[in-house]
Amino acid sequence: MIGLLTPFFDYEFMTRAALGGVALAVAGAPLGVFLVMRRMSLVGDAVGHAVLPGAAAAALLSGGNTLWTTLGAALTGTMVFMTAGPASRALRLPEDAGFAVFYLAALAIGVMIASMGGGVIDLDKLLFGAALAIDNTALALACTAALVTAIGITLVYRPLLIDTLDPQFLRASGGAKWAGPVAQSVFFGLLALTTVASFHALGALMSIGLTILPAIAARFWAKSVPGMILSAASLGIGGVLAGLLVSFHLAAPVGAAIVSCLVGLVLASSLMGPNQSLLTRSFGKTSLAHRAS
């Protein structure tokens, strides 16, 4: 069993990938829990896809420099996120349809820009990430995302929670009027930062996976929001480490291996988690508690 884990100590690229993955799981946990509670899982996915054109263009112009690619990704990701909602309303499209149009457009444009380089840009890396080839800049970005997200969410936790669970109450409860909009801006800013930071490891197509999937699984482990955040962080860390090991031992693509492990955790949690899983619903809480005792 211990032998399975040795790659993390024997190979520097595995250590870096593990550190980066753990940082991203920590950053993604609170964001994912709030995204799922706000029923915005797919919007997060759309933003993840939308980073591609900027990342591709910046990679093309800078010759694949990590910092420039990150800035390019942040630029188009933010642009799509800021414009998709208002543009959908202006065009009288349902908001989810508007997001679908925008992210498909972003994806298509991104692929075309990447192919313009005549093979200079590694499209696979942009789409699926390269967690095992994570460099210092990308690792620093992941750690920064974890730290800034932890601080940011702590600062706006209360208004963000009320805005998520009962937005009307936050507006009409006599509290500070700025609290709701500020909490939302901080939240979406942190989401953009973490999505861009995840992009290097998991690519445009799966970058949101490390944020959303542990949060979905966490609902089956905890009832309270802080409990869900802790569960999401633990599940995310577990999924990342398992995915890296699967990738190492089976020579599987690393991004896909991580996301597959996270999906496996979601399935296992929904079947056997202690809170509202298929098992607890089938047998009832009392009989399960009885068996445990």
Binding site: L165, D166, Q168, F169, A172, G174, S224, V225
Partner: peptide, 14 residues
């Protein structure tokens, strides 16, 4: 304080 007829409280609020 105001309690609307259909409060925006999410039915599955944890």
């Amino acid at each position: 304080a105001w309690l609307p007829q259909h409060p925006s409280l999410r039915p599955d609020a944890p």
